[in-house]
């Protein structure tokens, strides 16, 4: 990939998205082995710079980097302290002076990865979620999960339900799905649907339909993507109560019946059980939430690898070589990998 940074899905071409997904598929094998490590990024340094609490995404990036043999450093910054004197630019320049190969950044303010990427000219910047803007690796892992179960994304009917206005997951997914030719219905209370959201799909093969009726969005859907009701993000001022939200917009078994029989349900987590989704649905057979987490590591390995100069074919080769070495070694192999 000829790209220094991964700032959003919006900037990516269809080809780039497919390259990342294909590479991620190759890397998924690594996680299924006993020795979950390839030497690909040995000697490289990845800084995880998190200005917002996150267990899942930070851990996922850290594991991804480690499975590629990169050195990782985690920096968690309370946003309140950064504005006391040190500006974003100071932080960025300081980090760049330590010559890392990649900075993975999560920040509550939209646009910070873009600002950072402009300052750090020699470091890859990877957006791990910025404000309500984008969360590209989440959309990529969602796509990998969907592709695994539906073979292709083109032509699918996908429902995205919940707080679209404050959701970076929704935006990244809307870009990715419509680029790859899926049609997306977004649904939620009107107070949480941002203006002109349909225009995100302008000149894309997939289209966006907006509705305030959840049933309309779920009807014959192939995929249902639920968004977390972000209680900490004042979403509560946009609807009367969580109880009412659950009863009108939550996904329960009855609403799920409106979807296609082979529907899959995905959720970026963490789940608010009983609010955006009933427990029997999220724990049920249609739910792929844990598979998403597994795919998250593979996607992040692919992104780190591709941004740091690797290409798809080499990835497949390296994974296979490592697998053969492992089999030839003395350790018992319990992996289910089919290394044909």
């Amino acid at each position: 990939m000829r790209r220094k940074d991964l700032l959003g899905i919006r900037e990516l071409t269809v080809e780039e998205i497919e390259t990342i997904l294909d590479t991620a598929e190759a890397f998924r094998e690594v996680s299924r082995r006993n020795i979950k490590k390839v030497p690909t990024l040995r000697g490289r340094t990845v800084i995880n710079l998190f200005f917002e609490s996150s267990t899942r995404t930070r851990t996922s990036f850290e594991i991804a980097a480690k499975r590629l043999s990169a050195d990782t450093i985690n920096i968690s910054v309370a946003t309140s302290s950064i504005n006391k004197g040190e500006t974003l630019i100071d932080t960025a320049r300081n980090l760049e002076a330590m010559v890392p190969d990649a900075i993975v950044i999560r920040h509550p303010s939209s646009g910070v990865p873009h600002q950072l990427a402009r300052i750090c000219r020699n470091t890859s910047v990877i957006n791990a979620g910025d404000g309500a803007h984008e969360h590209p690796t989440q959309a990529l892992l969602d796509a990998l999960t969907i592709r695994e179960h539906k073979r292709t994304i083109r032509g699918l009917e996908v429902a995205i339900i919940g707080d679209i206005a404050h959701s970076r997951v929704a935006r990244s997914n809307l870009h990715l799905l419509t680029k790859l030719g899926a049609n997306v219905r977004v649904a939620g209370p009107r107070t949480l649907l941002p203006p002109e959201i349909g225009r995100l799909a302008e000149s894309r093969p997939g289209k966006i339909v907006v509705t305030s009726f959840v049933e309309e969005a779920i009807e014959a859907a192939d995929v249902i993507l639920l968004l977390r009701v972000q209680l900490e993000r004042e979403a509560s001022a946009h609807f009367p109560s969580l109880r009412e939200y659950a009863s009108f917009y939550g996904l329960n078994a009855k609403r799920l019946q409106l979807a296609r029989k082979d529907v899959i349900v995905i959720h970026p987590g963490p789940v608010n059980r009983g609010i955006e989704v009933a427990s029997d649905v999220i724990d049920g057979p249609y739910s792929l939430v844990y598979e998403q987490v597994t795919n998250g590591v593979a996607v992040r390995m692919a992104v780190l690898y591709l941004l740091m100069g690797g290409n798809k074919l080499d990835a497949v080769k390296e994974v296979h070589e490592a697998t053969h070495q492992e089999r030839a070694g003395s350790r018992p192999v319990t992996t289910t990998t089919d290394a044909s």
């Binding site: 939209s110 803007h133 984008e134 935006r171 002109e196 959201i197």
Partner: peptide, 13 residues
Amino acid sequence: NEGFYSTLLGLKG
């Protein structure tokens, strides 16, 4: 401004 760009960029409109 609240509109297409606030939606696109995830900035409050």
